[in-house]
Design a protein around this nucleic acid. Structure first.
Lengths: 348, 348
DNA sequence: TTTATTTTAGCAATCGATTGCTTTAAAAAT
DNA sequence: ATTTTTAAAGCAATCGATTGCTAAAATAAA
């Protein structure tokens, strides 16, 4: 279907016997137009149902009030919330958001980046895919004069603005909490270690153990348990060990924690009495499982807002040599029943 | 920060002593360029890290491979899933998605529409905000030659392509199921009746009651109970009635159903024995509450795909007078514990 | 070898809005 | 009444890519 001809500034100009430049100035309120003419132009524009062509405008002005966002999945709670937060701020500033999902595929992520570069977006906000390979595409963004902000899952080696969760600290807090609750053998469910976030969470786990002089037991650390299914499988193995753990920190997600909980329930293991469970992300459901699950809240919506504000306040304002800044948000441990051993029970 | 000069087709042309038109033709593979020159151009383009300027290209070509999406909230499960589905298909077709959220505000929705019109998107996909007022902005989309697809929450009076859930049927199925389980006094939690979806769900409820010769009792129908809190409040009132309902159909959402469940649990009312509860949407958590909640699955991701395919197959292919088509998807009742009365118990 | 045909490449206009510069008109100052 | 200053409006180039048309070159046919 062919687009019918839309009203342009030339149509308005012709109708009023004016020059297009005056129309443009009137519409942009950029002076050099008398009040009378301006009113007339505005009125006519409305009458003719004039809509600016942003393509033309942006082409001429050489910039685009659009920000590109690339996330692994838009319907994953954390990312959906970040996007909601981003949108909230960018909308206020009159910016648009172009959303792409990499589907956890590096190849697709590269394509998304290229599209966004072509679109001349003024900034790209990205959380890299799980099979992160290299940063050529990210460097390419910068080489094309487009601002780059990485968040959550980032490439540590590339110097850019970053907004991070303090995964290590949060993780350490979680494990410390488990220790305080008297758990002795704390297992860890890990995510892919090529992603910074999972590496950091593991570090936090190790750090907490060390600080409390707990032994570090490789048999209690399960690699690549980052889906509900993988976690359930790992949990079965853990709980069938001769000397099983008495707590499991599902550092990858609440879905993993849910997998743990289901396996434990099926095996007749009491949570939190016999097994403590801690998840990560504070998904809505963690509050309503029985028992409710202790987890880490990442303030995802406000993270989105922080990212957007970072762009508008620090980066956009042509601080030519603004030094890439790293903002770290401290997530919050949400303590719930799944790790709260009744103190009395403990004494038995 | 000023965008550094990017490579244009003129740069390539100059370097090779060619005309920009040849470069354009080579890059677009549109013939009239010898194989030798084409190869040379492609090679040089890569060397100079050429990236097309989509703004210029789209301006000239008069169309934009971009689709705009407007939803009330991007981080609401249903919408996030629809967007994921949309993105999946549009990505394959080389289209971009610009996402806006109306935040359930009509005024903001109007603004979003205008921005998208300015952006010259080729199609706008929308689910209207809760305080839907009028359709001027939607008509405006069409007047500007932009395709319009409404989904889920739609304006019935406006003739456009629509992708809907068969809310009435699903609702009727749900209530029929409750009746089959022996519930006698079935209450309804309604959403704002200016939204088609809630109106239809109510119709389904009424229709099921009528078909089974159940009395329609206004005191069992609670208006505007479309958040967890509002539902909880409504539930308290219902359960404190002299003659309380023995089932509640939270037609607005699973969050509402959750509100009902919490109130019932707190009041010591047994679910499903003394109270049946049915929600709507099949949120992830409905599976893991205790008891798990009966609900309606809307196939949200595949709905997104359906919408996108509708665009590419029916609308885009310049079927000039393609008659606005309405696609109705039949949601599926997911029966879980919260409505499954033990048949034996019933006999007591 | 000359003419006809096909390829290949260049020219220039176009998409719509913006903006520096110039001209004209109006207002202010002399 | 004349000159100076200021305000308003017009002109034309520009952003980068595309495309219909024309010109030149290369190939095929006579």
């Amino acid at each position: 279907m062919k687009t019918p001809k839309r009203t342009t500034i030339y149509d308005i100009a012709k109708k009023l016997n004016l020059n297009a430049s005056s129309v443009s100035r009137a519409l942009n309120n950029s002076g050099n137009v008398s009040e009378v003419t301006k009113k007339l132009i505005l009125k006519t524009a409305k009458e003719l149902n004039y809509k600016q062509n942003s393509l033309a405008s942006n082409l001429r002005k050489g910039h685009n009030q659009t920000i590109g966002v690339i996330v692994p999945r838009v319907n994953q709670n954390f990312f959906a919330n970040v996007i909601a937060g981003l949108e909230e701020v960018t909308y206020q500033k009159g910016y648009n958001l172009i959303i792409c999902q990499s589907n956890e595929s590096h190849a697709r992520e590269v394509k998304c980046v290229n599209t966004l570069i072509n679109q001349h977006v003024s900034c790209i906000i990205i959380s890299v895919s799980a099979d992160f390979e290299d940063d050529t595409h990210l460097r390419n963004i910068q080489e094309n004069g487009i601002q780059l902000i990485q968040f959550d899952r980032v490439d540590d080696n590339l110097e850019t603005f970053k907004v991070l969760n303090d995964n290590k600290q949060a993780s350490e807090d979680a494990v410390t909490h488990l220790i305080a609750q008297g758990y002795q053998r704390i297992a860890l469910l890990e995510g892919p270690q090529n992603l910074n976030i999972f590496k950091e969470r593991k570090e936090g786990y190790l750090s907490a153990l060390r600080k409390h002089n707990y032994p570090i037991l490789p048999e209690l650390m399960k690699e690549n348990a980052w889906t509900k299914e993988l976690s359930a499988a790992a949990t079965k193995k853990l709980l069938n060990m001769a000397h099983p753990p008495d707590a499991i920190f599902a550092s990858t997600s609440d879905f993993s924690a849910l997998g743990v909980l289901e396996v434990a329930t099926n095996m007749g293991i009491k949570v939190p009495a016999e097994l403590g469970i801690c998840g990560y992300s504070n998904e809505a459901f963690t509050e309503i499982t029985s028992p409710s699950i202790t987890t880490v809240d990442q303030y995802s919506v406000s993270m989105g807002k922080t990212i957007a504000n970072l762009y508008f306040q620090e980066i956009k304002s042509d601080n030519k040599d603004a030094i890439p800044k790293i903002v770290s948000i401290k997530p919050k441990l949400i303590i719930r029943s799944s790790t709260l051993r009744n103190k009395d029970e403990q004494r038995i």
